[in-house]
Design a protein around this nucleic acid. Sequence first.
DNA 1: TTGATTTTGTACTGAGCAATCCAAAACGCC
DNA 2: GGCGTTTTGGATTGCTCAGTACAAAATCAA
Lengths: 193, 193
Amino acid sequence: MARPRKFDEERAVDAALEAFWTAGYEATSTQDLCDATGLGRSSIYNTFKSKHDLFRRALLRYMERKNGNIDAVLESAMPAREKIRALLGVIVEEEQLHAEDRRGCLVVNTCIELGSRDPEVAGVLERDYRRRFEALKAAIEAGQRDGDIDRAKDAGALAHFVIAAIGGMRVSARAGVGRQALEGIMRTTIDAL
Amino acid sequence: MARPRKFDEERAVDAALEAFWTAGYEATSTQDLCDATGLGRSSIYNTFKSKHDLFRRALLRYMERKNGNIDAVLESAMPAREKIRALLGVIVEEEQLHAEDRRGCLVVNTCIELGSRDPEVAGVLERDYRRRFEALKAAIEAGQRDGDIDRAKDAGALAHFVIAAIGGMRVSARAGVGRQALEGIMRTTIDAL
DNA sequence: TTGATTTTGTACTGAGCAATCCAAAACGCC
DNA sequence: GGCGTTTTGGATTGCTCAGTACAAAATCAA
């Protein structure tokens, strides 16, 4: 009935995600999004309501992928402490990349850039936090049943603590902290479980 | 000899700081800076080289003030653990303010917004991190001498850990985490020392 | 092939951006 | 009061921003 699209919508979201991840929301212009996706302005605005809407889609996509990876680790057969060590180890690796690739975590970046200024994004962030929190808490509770993690400690508090440690490592990495120090933070965090 | 200034330069930096702190670097326009300082464009550009230069001055000023407060706590007569508890307690208070006042910490915000994109600012952030690190490490070492903190642990690693915990609490607060959870993170962090 | 429908490229909109220009104003000094 | 110097306000620069308008192109059903 009509002219079909020349591009894949999901691919476009992926490309936009790369751009937003690299530069942040404000610093990514609609022209940057055209360049990144290879689409013209019309196609972008015909497909997505606005830059903000595209960002929301890209952020959700990022969360989906990231949480998939987290779940894969948490659902593996490792002892609970090892699972958490693996999660923190990823942060060290990611934050030690060369400058041009070191863009951190889009969720953390967005918490700081938009968390207190964009109610819609704040809602997305809040739901994502809860999801990660529940997954981590469940893994910690399992570790407590296995005797791998101290049963006297509150699993929820530990889950909040681990998530905060991850965010903190990402902030410190941006302040110039090197690999050794990050590994020290990682060890101290795991020892606290 | 010449027409004198009608304003105080340091006051202007303070006012600019408020604006940058509230909205971040990118999202603060030069017009916003005029409004915040009460100065005209000419006065701003006659006094400061650029928006970027003014931001650098404001950031340094923020660090000066913030580090003054931190030093006051660390140099007090409290036991080391209590000092750290006090530092973390401030974060909980600050992040629980009503939305319009909840702007977090300019240093953390800047780490995420500019840390990996602005070499000059990155240098300032790095030096500030080192300063905080040294102060905290010294306090922890003193605590170890007093028997307040486990001597078997590496004071440097603990210092990095505490700084990361602070950054992490600020990120989590932006993701919507409430007071109770932040207090839990605080307790877990202190228990880890 | 025609016609209905959607996508696409391009030009454009109005607004806001950081920064500059310049002439008028405001001083201290003589 | 006049002079040299600096500050100040306001207009202006050239540019980029997010988003839109519109006509040409592409498809498919008939």
